[in-house]
Amino acid sequence: MGRPGLAVMDGHGCGFAGELMRRALLIAIPYVWLLALFLVPFFIVLKISLSDVELAIPPYTPTLDLSQGWAGITDFFSQLDFENFVWLTEDDLYWKAYLSSVKIALISTVLTLLVGYPIAYGMARAPTEWRPTLMMLVILPFWTSFLIRVYAWMGILSNEGYLNQILLWLGIISTPLTILNTNTAVYIGIVYTYLPFMILPIYSSLERMDESLIEAAEDLGCSRLKAFWLVTIPLSRPGIIAGCFLVMIPVIGEFVIPSLLGGSGTLMIGKVLWEEFFSNRDWPVASAVAVVLLLILVIPIVLFQRNQQKQTEAGQ
């Protein structure tokens, strides 16, 4: 599509206009698809978050009535208000859920980094012929159903679960530990399921690293640990940043892990939104919860995109 030579188009009988048409179409189809099914839905969420709940189908009011012309439109806008957002600030549940989601996301991102970095580092230091296999071993769980991987931990962490059985048998504990349905289980579940997202970007930045840099640092008198801290860590920073964003952003809105591994004390906003929608059938409040969640996520999402763009440009 890049540079249509004139000779080309004469030879094939398709004129410049046809060429332009084709280019426009190629751009327009994915563009319009994303506009219609990604961007427009957000405005609908925004609109419903400003509406009132109603016992009707659809269960909110006002609805836009275009048949009344301009009067219908002004009438519609005059009925929108910020009531639901005021409600979010008045009820403790919501802001506590936002805070606790952010807290859980931050702690589990750090935990995932601490678990993932040594694995990525080990992979990058492994003999070259092992690397594709190791890579495959990290990717494989990522392709396996998320739900199943979370479910696997339910059997391990429950009171009669395998972990308690082993610990009791070893005599480390005398009564079973309660892990399932606590925040600890949520942290374990998050680290486990999001680990590949942390390992892969860090591995790819470590793999590209020139090992002679470490040798140079050591020749210049750095200890191994100091060389690691002063050379390896800064060079793998793009990978660390990408990995942390890839874990943190989706975890803030996580639903499956808190609802299967967490308990009644685990407050996460994804679960609140789900219950508001499916159990309470309060669509306007659910939409308001989504709008605020999105506002919280805008900053990390924009930062993530910048990071990715910088990476791709560096790659080019």
């Binding site: 751009i27 994915p30 563009y31 994303l34 506009l35 099914l37 990604f38 961007l39 427009v40 839905p41 957000f42 609908i44 969420v45 419903i48 964003f245 890839l246 952003i249 989706p250 803030i252 809105g253 996580e254 639903f255 994804g270 939104l273 789900w274 929608f277 669509w283 659910a286 939409s287 989504a290 969640l293 999105l294 996520l297 990390p300 999402i301 993530f304 995109q305 990715q308 763009q309």
Partner: peptide, 24 residues
């Protein structure tokens, strides 16, 4: 805007995507 719409869904919480599409 186009490249933003390509990258944003990668990290968008599923509950938001699901809710917004349902309302659409």
């Amino acid at each position: 805007l186009f490249s933003g719409m390509i990258y944003a869904p990668l990290v968008m919480p599923e509950v938001i995507t699901g809710l917004s599409l349902l309302l659409l």
